[in-house]
Amino acid sequence: MKETSVKKSMAFNSAFLQQFLAFGSLILLIVFFSLSSSNFFQFSNIIGILLSTAVIGVLALGSTFVIITGGIDLSVGTVMTLSAVMTGVFITVWGMPVPLGILGGIMTGALCGLLSGAAVARMKIPPFIATLAMMMIAKGLALIISGTKPIYFTNTPGFSDISLGSLIGKVIPGFTIPNAVLIFFLTAIIGSIILSKTIIGRMNFAIGSNEEATRLSGVNVNYWKIVIYTITGTFTGLAGVLMASRLNSAQPALGMGYELEAIAAVVIGGTSLSGGKGTIVGTVIGALIMSVLTNGLRIMSVPQEWQTVVVGFVIILAVYADILRRRKA
């Protein structure tokens, strides 16, 4: 009897409701655009939406970790670029084998996260400032290392397949879901497991809920913060590799602004910027809402400038709905 009452209360708990709201809005959007334009609900268009979600999605997944601690990472956009550039350097300049080059790219992101984390945890620099600095450092380094020119992977056969090939298509002919999408969903599953099943996730929520109480519970908060920023960095590095593969080049000038889109996706997904609350599923839905919206509006021939305006309003709506719901509870 105890068990059933517990389950019942879980069904009404707030995280669940928020996800349901977000998921409901996503479905509504899809239905709306499908009715508005016959071009929307086509297999190729859906694939296009998913593909365009992948990079921002992986960035947003990573950001979710830092945001749940009550922190923020403004550097994910340019660290992604730096990771892409380093992947290019490792593979095309140093001639490293592709898998090693990819690993190097991901480690670049992880290292940047580690440094941001150390600045936040050890030097007590507020996350906003520490990662703002990292954003600029990474941006500058990406330009310096690449000599401000794109690095092309045209001589690395198969590199673009990492994003654009389709493993699923090989197993199920015709069902050509690009690898980038597959990687996005796999990353989401891994992220979700880390957050809900491991000690890292517990520390994540504990620190976000009350950092000082967590410290006074004998938790080495500094250590875990560095771990968490490093995880965000690792996801960011992966996003960099995906980005490079998708463009078949590392574009050193890209990347600024991606961090804000990632944060927007996290927030639309119901994660609280004040920390302690959030889910990976929410972030996935948040990222999908953003790209469905952009894609749908484009199909309806809404000019790009207006698309941005609409996304802005959606962020306000999503967060306000969340605030209203909390006020009730």
Binding site: F205, A206, S209, N210, E212, L216, K277
Partner: peptide
Amino acid sequence: KQYGCLLDM
């Protein structure tokens, strides 16, 4: 409230 509990948890 401030130094003991994780209130939301």
